[in-house]
């Protein structure tokens, strides 16, 4: 009896906190589907037949740029992720597998970036991009995000690689497999479970970043969705339907992807890379 009571208490606490976590988000998404009057009149009610309206979405999605913003975010994030994973895994492998003069020093050098945010170098990054004629290009963002994501990725992947049994690499060497093929054909396929962990630490910050898009690619053709929504809201600040719809447009895709992959994502996170 007492035990039941205690379990109940634990669940009510967890339910309460879960509500605190998701209610604000639901509130925004829910109201984005309502007519203006209902947004203010009955903000806590679900949209009903009378209050349902897509007027905000019509305006947001009618804004031809939203598609471009989405494409920009998607391409920047995916390409950055791919380069972070590829370069990061290659470097992590070399650091974990080959002992050479200065390898510890190099590992230390690469790990500075875990603790020191790349943003602090923004001024010089901007100057450099101006000199390279890369301002307002997606490439500028990709390069910076790759540099930003690498240290953490190398750290996580090194831990992961060091857990791959040494015998496996030795077996491949005895089999006469060349070093580069050992990496791409034996080690890389085994890194799949680490990708979720790397993703949380690199993709999410890239997709959600406001700073570098604002700094390096504020032009209309190169804006990311986060920046685009921010600017859109700035323009239509009093048009609640549009603002809520714009926020939802930014939230819903991420939410859907998150819910689909949450199990892998979270098990990747808890799989211990960071102990």
């Amino acid at each position: 009896m007492q035990l039941k009571w205690r379990v109940g208490l634990i669940h009510s606490f967890l339910i309460a906190y879960s509500l605190i976590a998701v209610l604000p988000i639901l509130l925004v998404v829910m109201n984005s589907f309502k007519i203006r009057k209902a947004i203010f009149g009955t903000p806590l009610a679900l949209p009903s037949a009378e209050t349902f309206s897509l007027v905000g979405y019509v305006k947001v999605l009618g804004n031809a740029n939203i598609g471009i913003y989405f494409f920009n975010s998607l391409s920047v994030t995916l390409i950055s992720m791919a380069t972070v994973l590829l370069f990061g895994a290659m470097a992590a492998w070399a650091l974990a597998e080959y002992r050479f003069k200065g390898s510890n020093l190099l590992a230390l050098f690469l790990s500075i970036g875990i603790m020191v945010p790349i943003r602090l170098g923004s001024i010089s990054i901007l100057h450099m991009m101006v000199d390279l004629n890369l301002v307002n290009t997606r490439l500028a963002l990709i390069l910076v995000y790759t540099a930003q994501g690498l240290p953490m990725a190398i750290f996580i992947l090194s831990e992961f690689i060091s857990q791959i049994p040494r015998d496996l690499r030795d077996a491949a060497r005895c089999d006469g497999v060349p070093e580069i093929a050992i990496f791409f054909q034996v080690i890389a396929p085994l890194l799949r479970p680490a990708i979720a962990t790397v993703a949380v630490f690199t993709i999410v910050p890239i997709w959600n970043d406001l700073w570098f898009p604002l700094l390096l690619a504020p032009g209309n053709d190169t804006q990311t969705i986060t920046l685009g929504i921010q600017q859109f809201i700035g323009q239509y600040i009093t048009d609640w339907n549009s603002v809520l719809a714009a926020l939802s447009v930014a939230i819903i895709p991420v939410l859907v992807i998150y819910l689909i992959f949450s199990r892998q994502l979270i098990s990747g996170l808890t799989a211990g890379a960071v102990k």
């Binding site: 015998d167 077996a171 060497r173």
Partner: peptide, 20 residues
């Protein structure tokens, strides 16, 4: 010589099979 050039083959305690 590299392992592959020595004409040896090795069997490991952990089997070291390629899992994929």
């Amino acid at each position: 010589l590299e392992p592959a050039q020595r004409k040896i083959a090795m069997v490991f305690q952990t089997y070291a099979l390629y899992p994929h």
